[in-house]
Amino acid sequence: MQTAQLVLLVAAGCVAALMACSALVVRFKSPKPRAREESENYYLCIDEKCERQRLGRLSDEASVDLSIIVPAYNEAERLPVLLNDIREYVDARRQRGSFSYELVVMDDGSKDGTIDVALEFARIHGIRELKAVRHVVNRGKGGAVTQGMLCSVGRFVMFCDADGATRFSDIDALLARAQAVSGPVVAIGSRNNKALSGTVVERSHMRAFLQWGFHTYVTLLGVRGVRDTQCGFKLFSREAARRIFPNMHVERFIFDIEILLLARYQDISVVEVPVNWHEVAGSKMSIVRDSIQMALDLLAVRLNYMLGNWTIGSGH
């Protein structure tokens, strides 16, 4: 067999193997979100007259200035730190003028009484704006965020991690950048060291290495121009949220990438804003297992959009 024929045969074999692997990834790794249970259409609050109330809808008109979505899975110990940070921010913000908000804690099937901790905090501090939603079974962080966003009523909507790793008052910087943009916009917190002159970022060497590797992989798969895709501190104009979240498929850790892909596909502006961040003990992620899972999930997401298996609706 001539060298040229051998090269062609090997190339054909590689292409066939790549196509087969891609088909397997799409077949077995594509996320399949479950439908919302009837009980998940309601929230608990400290209003004695009506403790269980029906959630709002993202498609409705905004009724408050800001919706804060907090995905929480077994966060009974760490959640109060974030809730107190939010409470202090709201108190300070209201001293500057009128400010309305809702705080939606999405208890993603916790086993440690997370929802009870949230409601008790609300009772102690008189926070009637806190809405606690209980998922029947765990969806994953992305699923909890998406379900929270779909029921938000804010002019701006944001989500933040329950561990309180990001200083909540940094939301002012995200709001300022978002309000300076004409049209739908996503403002995302960034922990990138070179981008963060004047802010504080504390992370382990292992986390920094994994972030570098993941960023390289994300860039190779076509998500470019964002230095920190995974920071759990993101803000959306209501129009941007309406275009993005009804189209979401991913319910696990890689959901941030689908958000950015949907923004790019729909020409929604994305701005990065430096935030103060520190590593907090108690992460639910397994470094090895979840890194592999995220890599496969990201490939499945990219392939589904490239092949046209997933289409983007208007979201209205």
Rank of each mutant, 00 (worst) to 15 (best):
A11W: 00
M248Q: 09
P80Y: 06
A281K: 10
E258F: 11
A4W: 10
D85F: 07
R252S: 14
A240Q: 05
S22K: 05
R54S: 01
F209C: 05
H215W: 09
V301E: 13
N192K: 12
A35H: 06
A300V: 12
R252A: 15
E48M: 11
S98H: 13
A180Y: 03
R203A: 02
Y42K: 09
M294L: 11
S152T: 03
A178P: 00
P33A: 05
F233L: 14
V104H: 12
S286Y: 09
A187W: 06
L18V: 14
E51T: 11
G142P: 02
L79T: 05
A176S: 12
G109I: 05
I244R: 02
F28H: 05
M106Y: 02
L210G: 00
Q293F: 14
A20L: 15
L175T: 04
G109H: 03
R302E: 04
P71R: 01
L210S: 00
A240H: 05
M285W: 12
A241D: 04
K29I: 02
L174W: 02
V64Y: 00
R302M: 12
V105T: 04
A20N: 07
V301Y: 00
E279T: 04
E51L: 01
F245D: 01
R224P: 00
V10T: 14
K131S: 07
R134S: 01
V10C: 13
T219W: 15
A162P: 09
L299V: 14
F233Q: 08
G315L: 07
H205S: 01
H125A: 03
C21D: 08
F156E: 15
L8D: 03
R54M: 05
I244D: 00
R191G: 04
A208H: 13
V226G: 03
L299D: 02
I244P: 04
G183T: 11
E75F: 06
N84M: 10
K32R: 15
S283G: 09
C45G: 14
R264F: 03
G164V: 11
D112T: 00
E202S: 12
S169H: 14
G225Y: 01
R289M: 05
R302F: 10
F156W: 13
V270N: 02
G143H: 05
G13C: 04
N309Q: 07
Y43K: 03
V153R: 11
V157Y: 00
V223K: 13
D170Q: 09
L221K: 11
R177W: 06
V223W: 04
M1F: 13
W310L: 04
D60E: 13
I259E: 10
E279G: 08
A208T: 11
M1N: 03
T146V: 15
Q266Y: 12
E75L: 02
V201G: 01
A300N: 07
Y101W: 11
R27S: 10
Q5H: 06
G140S: 04
D161H: 13
L150C: 07
I68P: 09
Q95H: 14
K49G: 02
R177L: 09
S283N: 07
E88G: 13
S110H: 01
M149H: 02
